[in-house]
Design a binder for these strands. Structure first.
Lengths: 192, 192
DNA sequence: TCTTCCATGTAACGCGTTACATGATTTT
DNA sequence: AAAATCATGTAACGCGTTACATGGAAGA
């Protein structure tokens, strides 16, 4: 009951700190980024980001400067405080809490035995196409990252970008190969 | 406003229908299974399962028979109704809604450039160990599944079990290889 | 005797999504 | 003239987790 309230920062909070460690951003910027770069492994809409920024602010992990905005409100440009950077580093080194797994795609495939084999093949190849589309966008982005010499320096943000992007490419490649393997399994079973 | 309320079944609801398609279960059974077999791709506690079963019941997708339980309440054994089976099949064939991605592990690694390379190596090898442990349990379970001749019949539940398990093995193998690759990247960067 | 397992439910709270609300500047 | 972009917020609701609550039977 007497615990430090500032300890209770969600993964979203740390995802935001991670983004701000890479540069100053407005809440609007963060919301956009949460759909693309970081969005590849964590998503959030602006309705979640603004309240979270207020919490980070009252915990003194971020600060902002106000600018003349073109809308009805002032634009707030956020950055990490020294405390924020320290909290983020401490979180990285702490034991990760096991995360719940939610893979709707596999939940579906897990019940495909109820359908006839042709319907299954359709399901699987649609699944394959979705993975392949994401893979293509990752490969596309990778081209720019590997060209940057900073991506070879372990203490530069582009190094971490390159390594995590490679992870995305490898996992999607594995998924595409898995789909192909499943289609071959149906062929093998049908040919018996 | 005049839509069919029974249309609104969550992924959890369909995960339960998928489990019941494979055999009769009590709520307690489902909660246990949601930690292991299906739990590999969808998790839920009993506090979520009991209310969801009530919803599925009022939508007439499941039914139950009561048995003398050894606790203070009667034991309810649930099964799919014909409607439930039809809804499940229809869901499998419907367009999947894009799911939000939440990968805390990658969010962490994405900020590892803030740490010194040795701390990063520690983070990555701990990550590798966790993936390897899950992989080992999958491989272990696979042994039993592939031995079952039913796992070769596309319209038997064991066929779907085998294919999804293979997916888990492939994705965890890819993750372990990715971690090894990252460690090698640190070595390469350090040796410059 | 103590702990675990079977078996069911409810309550409180936090995270996440969708929708509501506003309004100026820039592009089509 | 219309649409998209920048930019910020709030409200309502649903999903998910933790904790509360009960109690018999079986095993250690």
């Amino acid at each position: 009951m007497h615990e430090d309230r500032s300890t209770e920062i969600s993964t979203l909070g740390f995802a935001i700190l991670g983004l701000l460690a890479r540069g100053e951003r407005t809440g609007y910027d963060l919301a956009k980024l949460m759909k693309r770069p970081v969005g590849y492994f964590w998503t959030a809409g602006h309705a979640q980001i603004y309240p979270e920024l207020s919490r980070l602010l009252s915990a003194r992990l971020v600060s902002y400067t106000e600018e003349q905005g073109r809308g009805p409100r002032t634009t707030k440009r956020y950055r990490l405080t020294a405390d924020g950077r320290a909290w983020l580093k401490a979180w990285l080194l702490a034991e990760p809490t096991p995360q719940p797994i939610r893979d709707q795609e596999t939940v579906r495939l897990w019940s495909m035995w109820l359908l006839d084999p042709d319907a299954c093949r359709g399901l699987i190849s649609a699944c394959r196409d979705r993975h392949a589309a994401v893979l293509a966008s990752f490969v596309d982005e990778q081209a720019g990252v590997v060209a940057d010499p900073d991506s070879r320096n372990p203490q530069h943000k582009q190094f971490a970008t390159r390594l995590t992007l490679e992870g995305g490419i490898r996992s999607r490649t594995a998924a595409v190969e898995w789909c192909d393997w499943m289609l071959a399994e149906f062929d093998a079973a049908g040919a018996r």
